[in-house]
Structure formats: C-alpha cells, structure tokens
Design a protein around this nucleic acid. Sequence first.
DNA 1: TGCTCGCGTGCAACCGGTTGCACGTCAAGT
DNA 2: ACTTGACGTGCAACCGGTTGCACGCGAGCA
Lengths: 343, 343
Amino acid sequence: MARLEGRRQAPTIKVVAAAAGVSTATVSRVFSRPHLLRESTVAHVTEIARELGYRPSHTARALSTGRLGMIAVVVPDIANPFFPPVIRAAQAHAGAGGVSTVVGDTDEDPAKELDLLAELERRTDGVVLVSSRLPEEQVREIAARGHPLVLVNRDVRGVPRILVDSAPGIREAVDHLAGLGHRHLAYISGPAGSWSDEQRRVALRARCAELGITATVLRPHRPEHDEGRAAAAEVLATGATAAIAFDDGLAQGVLAGMAESGVAVPAEISIVGCDDILAATTYPPLTTVHGRGGEAGRLAVELLMELVERPGGERDRRVLLPSHLVTRSSSAPAPAAPAAPRR
Amino acid sequence: MARLEGRRQAPTIKVVAAAAGVSTATVSRVFSRPHLLRESTVAHVTEIARELGYRPSHTARALSTGRLGMIAVVVPDIANPFFPPVIRAAQAHAGAGGVSTVVGDTDEDPAKELDLLAELERRTDGVVLVSSRLPEEQVREIAARGHPLVLVNRDVRGVPRILVDSAPGIREAVDHLAGLGHRHLAYISGPAGSWSDEQRRVALRARCAELGITATVLRPHRPEHDEGRAAAAEVLATGATAAIAFDDGLAQGVLAGMAESGVAVPAEISIVGCDDILAATTYPPLTTVHGRGGEAGRLAVELLMELVERPGGERDRRVLLPSHLVTRSSSAPAPAAPAAPRR
DNA sequence: TGCTCGCGTGCAACCGGTTGCACGTCAAGT
DNA sequence: ACTTGACGTGCAACCGGTTGCACGCGAGCA
C-alpha cells in the first residue's frame, strides 16, 4: 500500500523557501516583483526553484490577487470559418502576454450566450465577444456588470469594440464589377439584424447610386450553403449580371445553385463573396471582400488587456478595420444579356 | 472621489454565514455536501445565499480541493471542419457535468502542442487530445506525467483512447462503388504518418482485394484543397473510374480539379470523401464516410471525467466508433471508359 | 558619534473556500 | 437513569501564494 514512490507533488513556495534559506515572501517576490529584491537573491532563488522544478500555482495566485491570467473569446459558431482566424490571433497575442485563452461557442443561441458569458466572467479576467447575437440592450447590461469586455463586429456605444469595416471592400467590389461593364447588381442579404449585413447593404446601395447602376437587394438569408443555393434562382430572376453575397458561405451556395441551373460563372454571371473565409477552395475561386478577422482578434485582445490592467480606462474605444477586395475567378466582364437558367 | 457606490463585491461564504446565522463550514457544506446537513438548514442557507446572489468561487474551491472544474480539448487546427463537432460535443457533455471546457489549438505544430499541453495540465483537471501530431514516444511521456489524458484518433497503448474506425465506412464505400460497376479505384492518401490515413488505406486495399478489383494508392497529400486539386490529374492518370480521398477537404479539391479539367463528376468519374465535414456544401454534394466526430468528443469527455474521479482507474481503455457511408451525388455508375482531361 | 533614511527581508494576515476532528444533543438500547 | 451512538454543527487548520507593515542594517550626513 505504500504509494510513496507515486507522483511527486509539485513543489510549493514553502519548500523552495526552505531550500533557499529565505522566507516564502521572498520567493513570492522573486516571481512577481523581482525588482524589490537584491539581484543576488533573485539569482539564487531562481536557481533553486529551477532545480526543484517549481512553478507558481495559478490558482493560489488568483486567489490572492484576483487575477486569473485567463481571458475568453466567445463566438457564435466555432464551425463558421470566419471565426477561427479571430480566435487564433487572439490566442497568439494573449499567449505572448502570459495570458491563457479559452474559447466559448454559443451555438448561435442567445440564451446559451448569456449563460456562457456569466460563467466565463467568473473564470476569466475579461471577455472578447465576437459577433454577439444578443440584443443591444443586453450587451449593455453585460458590459455594465463591470467585467472587462471587448466586442468584435458589434457596434454598441459605450462598449469598447473592434469593427471590420466592410464598406471600403464593398465599394471596391462595386467598382470592380462596374469596371467590368456590369450595370445591374444583386445583393444577397445576410441574417436580419446583423450589423455587418446592414453595413454591407448600405455601402453597396450608396456606391451603386454614385455610379448610376442598378442595385437589387434580396431578402435576408441565413449564412448557409443551402440558402445560397436557393438564392441562385432569386438572383437570376432579378436580371442582374452580378451578385454580391453577404458572406462566402452563401456565395458558395450560389455557385452551386448556378452550376445546377447550368449557368456558367463567371462567363454568364459574376459572383462576389464577403469575409474571404474560403480562400480559393471554391470552384471557380471566389472573388471576395477580405475581412481581416485576424487583426480584429489581435486588436481586441490588446484592448482587453488594457482594460484588465486599468479598469478605469477609456470605455468607449471604437476601432474600424478597413477591408479590401480580393479578386479571383468568379467575376468577369458582363455578358451581353443577363443569364437565364438552362435546365 | 467617494466610489462607494461602485461595483458591489461578490458576496463570500462569510457574509452568507453571518446572514444565515451559521458557520462558514455549514455554508460550504450546503454547496458541496448538502446530504450531511439537516434539510431545513440547507433550505434556509440556500434561500439566504440566493437573496445575496452568492456563488462559490471556483478559485478558492480549487485551491483547497485541487479540482479546477475545467477540462481542455486540444486540436491541431480549429479551422479544420472535422474538429468543431468534436469540440462542441465535448463542451456540451462537460457542461452538463458542471465542468467548463477550454479549447486549445496547436496550429499543427508539435512544439506548440507540447507547450500547450504543459500549460493546460496546470489549468485543468484533464485533457482530451485530438489527433495529436506528437510522436508516440512523447504521447506516452505526457500520459506518464499522471495528468488525466484521453486521446481521440490516436492509438497509443496504455493511454485511454477513442478511435473513429474508418474501416467499416471505407468497406461500405468500396462495396457501393463496386456495386455501381467500378472495377478500378484510386485512394488519395492523407498526411504521412496519420493513424486515420493508414487505417483507411489498409481497409480499402483489403476490401478491393476481396472483391477482386484494382486499387491504386496515390502519394501522401496534405489534407488541403490545393493538394486535392493537384491530385485530380494524378487520379485521371491512373485510369481509375472512382477515387476515395483521405478527407472531404481533399475530395473537394479533387472536385474542383475535375471541373477545371472538364471531367464531369459523377458521370465520368465518381469521388468519395471521408469524415463528412462538408455536409452537402460541395457541388455535386459529396458521397462520403461519416466520421462521427461528435460521438467521439462526447465519449472522450465521459472517459476523462471517470479518470478525474478515480485517478486509479483503468488506463488502457480503447473505444472504437464504427463509421458508415453517406451516399450523395458525387458517385454514380461507372462510365464505359475511364475519363480523360478535356482541356 | 549620533541621527536619518532607504533598502532588503521577514512576519503574519489575508484571499475564499474545504474538511478532520471535537462537541453537544437527542433518541434508542439496556 | 445511564450508556451508546448517530447526527448536525462549529472550530480552526489548511490549500499556495501575496502584500502591508515592521524591523535591522549600513551608508550618508551633521
């Protein structure tokens, strides 16, 4: 029964102190505020600690300082390819600052989002909330609870936020298509109430108006492949020679829908996506508006860390990240006549 | 400057105890081992705690019990659509048990994986390691550190593991194609050294041999779209009338490559994927072997929780999850003659 | 020589729970 | 009536660090 040979317990500050012949306070300071100590002391204790394999306990530290050394990134759907770059960038940036990152997935469900946020507030020093599906009112309430919070792609006044500004990219897209001779564009709307969707729609309308070309806005769509496939017919019905979709997933669906209808992309109709989350994995490779999710993630963490350091800091930061068009092969000169389904 | 009206501190066990006229020990027991207490006491304290909005502190609890109430799921690439279902299922199952889940992304980098695991061991009660890219030797070492660990899709003896067994699905796929009249199949290999790849390759060869049809195995490919596109030409060069790809991403690339070459799928060649991670988002919708990532995630967490409860438990559990074929539209009867590129 | 001052370190309380042990109470057993 | 024991609760130590305060020492200054 003697299990003495078992797992060696992780050494505590106490055994390091004893081994180094100093008090636990000194060991503690070596790892948290070494500038208060004589250099030789720091060196000595560090050496002993290294030999013993000592690592300060996050838990104990958290208990006395109130700092968990951990932040959260919450997204609506981890499987949506827009988010992984955001998460990854956040993770990398936080890690560089000695802070761990946890990822939360709300499954596109506002109720889950609420619960998750409550839980994460107790587990982390701060939260990056990406594309929240909560009503603005609730976002405000959450922010008011005082736990550091930074939003991404959600524009709520009084809450620090990073916004990918689709407008420049959309304008470029419209210019690009107009330059190819298209005189009638369709916009395939995303989820009703989405901040990004509204921004894109408005930018598209405005630019089309400036250039004097026609813009038809289709009904809202969930950003999913099937919806895009269905939207293909709607696009053809408008007589537009080019369509811009709310996001790449939708655009990919449209591509499939066009293929099914026997309409050639880009020869007969041009398709443009948004977010650049599919890279060149579609056929034909998709012309799209690059969303810069990575930068957004990095900046959000940066802002969040500031808030964690100084809870009194600026609460109304609003950062806009301009987007831009990436031209691939799903856009081409306008055909002589609008396309029509062939089968 | 009087900030007294500021944030109300979260109430501690002490204030609840005082308000309820009991000791802190009692309050503690109400929340951890209520069966030790008289029912009326539990009810009374619970009520007071509710009024005060008291929630036990994870940190403090962790310090005295050594249980963090958190587990980790580590994946090589959060952007690879195979993993989100695994993660989500794990999250759901752990959450139901009152345990939080952290997601780690190793970016396909073994060095990062090693660091991340070390960090997570100190932050969690246990780790689910999915599709580890580490050499078996290292996986063993990590398991030997005694921190509860469950592998998914990695078959290392002596470490509890959940394996998606592709063999049944592959056999079904071969049978399906053979039934459609195909007499020559190509297998587009995945990453060299991947456990899943080897399993799929072996199963395919074996089943083809049994049915007396030809199997050509192509070189290893990274599981990415571009590689698949390139592989299309290799497939055509073999003269096979059907191809099974290591995963859906690769298969999707092959689809694009075939489209570029003007070869019709499935009329001229049939394509089958693995993992069923793209659902019906390809064109044509992909016939594929369903991987059951979700179940794997759920089971892994279940096993892990057991290990956390009883560190002395069974260390060599090995669970196999059978896969099966999902037939969509990328497979069809064999053409009279093998396809050749048209452009 | 005596006084001040600053630096480096230690003491001990504290963060917010958990838990072994002891104590008091009350019902059942003899 | 007295012992026994189960049950419910409290006391206080403990988990592993952090930190305000005090103390001792040596240098600088008058």
